[in-house]
């Protein structure tokens, strides 16, 4: 068991390192010059080759990429001092660099935007389960009836629509056109400022994520429950005279949930890594939105930070899922 976790952990670390290297290298060799966007912005689109070279020199973009990546990686663990021109910026650990666009330390910005993303992701993920599992169980119990068939086909229909269109329409109608009182004010207010406003602003994004995502969970739960409910031990439990709800929830659901938990762990990681469409559509200033705008402005430090952050979260959630799964199901560990 221990060796298994270590093995998974090691491969996770390799993934994170590879991702950060890839993003760094892509930016370095990718666009004409990583300093070009900054140069364009600073000189009012009059970026001459001389000026570009000045910026490259100031920002360290004409150094060796291996050295710069080494500095970057070292800074994450020990912090570093970053000379930009003749100013030295003190960047404590974990140092993710300095955003040239917003002129702030990347880590500080990340921490600032994290609560919004966590709010969206956790609320949405909660609704995945809170809606998906009961609906799935109910459908499995009424398998083959008209209601079950209607539900399955309507959910298949819903999950075939791309998520961003679903969310966009929800925003356009609820917020813009109908201005529904509670759902109409989507946006992020810190929970510490005003919990009621926070809840009101998050409600529509949560519902969109939840309703769209729960289709998947309903399908998994329904499938697993249908299988479980035909097992012998369920018949035994029924024969003992246990009330139907105990049979379904205590005996059936417990084993049916294993695959659902797996999917959920991975989804939560993906959600936390960046609810990009949700944040873009509902104008929530979270990690996803931040990464998106940084990508469009070629803000290398911010982009590497978001990619690194996303990869770490996904690797961690995968790891946790693997461990939970191997505890629940010994066959996984042994294979």
């Amino acid at each position: 068991m221990f060796a298994y976790i270590i093995k998974r952990l090691l491969s996770g670390v390799i993934v994170v390192i590879l991702v950060s290297m890839a993003v760094f290298a892509l930016f370095w060799y990718g666009p004409s010059s990583p300093a070009r966007p900054i140069c364009l912005a600073e000189t009012g689109n009059r970026c001459t080759p001389d000026r570009l070279e000045n910026y490259e020199e100031q920002l360290g973009y004409n150094n060796n990429i291996v050295d710069e990546y080494g500095n970057y990686a070292k800074g994450i663990f020990t912090g570093r001092e970053m000379p930009i021109g003749n100013v030295v910026i003190d960047c404590d650990r974990p140092c993710l660099g300095f955003s040239h666009r917003s002129r702030a330390l990347v880590w500080d910005e990340l921490v600032e935007r994290l609560p919004a993303t966590i709010s969206v992701a956790v609320g949405g993920a909660f609704l995945y389960l809170a809606l998906g599992i009961p609906i799935g169980v109910a459908a499995a119990r009424r398998r083959g009836t008209l209601g079950d068939k209607l539900l399955v086909s309507s959910f298949l229909f819903l999950s075939s629509v791309p998520y961003y269109l679903f969310a966009l329409l929800a925003w356009l109608y609820f917020t813009l056109i109908w201005q529904v009182p509670i759902l109409g004010s989507s946006g992020y207010t810190p929970i510490t400022d005003n919990p009621a406003e926070w809840f009101k602003g998050m409600l529509l994004p949560w519902l969109c994520l939840g309703i769209f995502g729960c289709t998947q969970y309903t399908r998994y739960t329904r499938g697993a429950m249908v299988e479980t409910l035909s097992e012998d031990y369920i018949r035994t439990a029924k024969a003992k005279g246990l009330p139907p709800s105990t049979v379904v929830y205590r005996h059936g659901l417990r084993s049916a949930l294993v695959p659902v938990v797996t999917v959920f762990g991975i989804d939560l990681g993906v959600l936390l890594a960046g609810t990009i469409f949700t944040e873009r559509i509902f104008e929530i200033q979270g990690i996803g939105r931040w990464g998106l705008s940084a990508v469009q402005a070629f803000d290398l430090p911010v982009v590497s930070a978001t990619a690194l952050f996303g990869a770490i979260l996904i690797v961690i959630s995968n790891l946790i899922v693997d461990v939970i799964y191997s505890v629940l199901d010994p066959r996984v560990r042994l294979s």
Partner: peptide, 21 residues
């Protein structure tokens, strides 16, 4: 393992910017 959307987001503008000139 890689988050598709995040990676596509990073790579797409870089690749297309390369040819913007």
């Amino acid at each position: 393992t890689l988050p598709f959307l995040l990676m596509a987001l990073v790579i797409a503008p870089i690749l297309s910017e390369r040819f913007a000139l």
